[in-house]
């Protein structure tokens, strides 16, 4: 499997401005969140990226893409019909090829020399199938993520054969359908915001759209659950961290993570110690 294309969704409600936020990247350069995501994709060997946006946002995104503008193809989602629908808009772009899918409000810091997206793309290439990046997550955060259930792939640490996918399950549902042997009690494999998907997923999305009642909002998780029943589909624990910049303090933590993994680590740490020492005196 050779993966050259990627789809990034950025049309979600309330998501409009997030990728345009700027951060100081690990190399000390200031970049927009979008550019950081695009560089993550490029590092994984991606050459062309479809960015799904609201039509009115195209200009701003183009500007925020920095040095990666050449890779970009803009795809419009005219109506806010959900995540699955947004991804489905890129079906002409992806065609018959597998593709990397990223969400624009997640940033990654790798724990190895390879970037997070690159780790995932390599697993997909080796297995010739769809793979979602996952992270073991405490049940108290289930309401934020799509979650997979399945079995470990024998002999492969952190690889799982996916049997079931649920969007933001309740702990009750998770316990009944998504328990993965080998994980700590109360921990589940939640999406990391990175997937390598096959064209089959577009067919599943199309079916979901047709079956959906009004309004036709569909989730990617439903389609991925169908995909798991049709073709080989793996989940892979990525060595690295994800930061969701769409939640309260998300951008702050994303910046902190990049600073602590970057060239300015010592300076930032020293400043933090000073800040900590001088704060809280009145409390």
């Amino acid at each position: 499997m050779h993966i050259e294309r990627a789809v990034i969704t950025a049309a979600g409600k309330g998501q409009g401005g997030l990728p345009l936020q700027t951060l100081v990247d690990t190399d000390g350069e200031t970049r927009s969140a979008l550019e950081i995501v695009l560089r993550e994709a490029a590092d994984a060997g991606i050459q062309q990226v479809a960015l799904v946006v609201r039509p009115s946002d195209e200009a701003a995104y183009r500007e925020a893409s920095g040095g990666c503008a050449d890779m970009l193809h803009f795809v419009h989602q005219s109506e806010p019909l959900g995540y699955g629908h947004a991804l489905f808009q890129a079906r002409d772009f992806t065609g018959d090829a597998p593709f990397l899918h990223l969400v624009s409000d997640h940033l990654y810091v790798t724990g190895t020399e390879k970037g997070c997206a690159k780790q995932l793309v390599e697993v997909a290439a080796a297995n010739d199938c769809a793979v979602s990046a996952v992270q073991a997550t405490r049940e108290t955060n289930l309401s934020l993520y799509g979650t997979v259930g399945g079995m470990k792939v024998p002999g492969r640490d952190g690889w799982y054969e996916v049997e079931c996918v649920r969007e933001k399950p309740t702990p009750t549902q998770a316990e009944q359908e998504l328990v993965v042997p080998g994980l700590r009690a109360g921990h589940y494999l939640c999406f990391f915001g990175l997937h390598v998907l096959t064209p089959g997923v577009m067919a599943c999305l199309e079916e979901s759209l047709e079956a959906a009642e009004h309004p036709k909002t569909i989730s990617l998780s439903t389609a991925l659950h169908t995909l798991a029943g049709r073709e080989k589909y793996l989940a892979c624990e990525i060595i690295g961290e994800r930061q969701n910049i769409g939640i309260p303090y998300g951008l702050f933590y994303a910046q902190l993570a990049r600073a602590l993994h970057g060239v300015d680590r010592d300076t930032v740490l020293a400043d933090m110690v000073t800040l900590l020492a001088s704060s809280g005196g009145d409390r």
């Binding site: 049940e139 316990e175 109360g186």
Partner: peptide, 14 residues
């Protein structure tokens, strides 16, 4: 299964 989590949950934020 489906009941276990309730015995682990000990804080409102969870």
């Amino acid at each position: 299964r489906g009941n276990q989590w309730m015995f682990r949950l000990g804080h409102p934020l969870d």
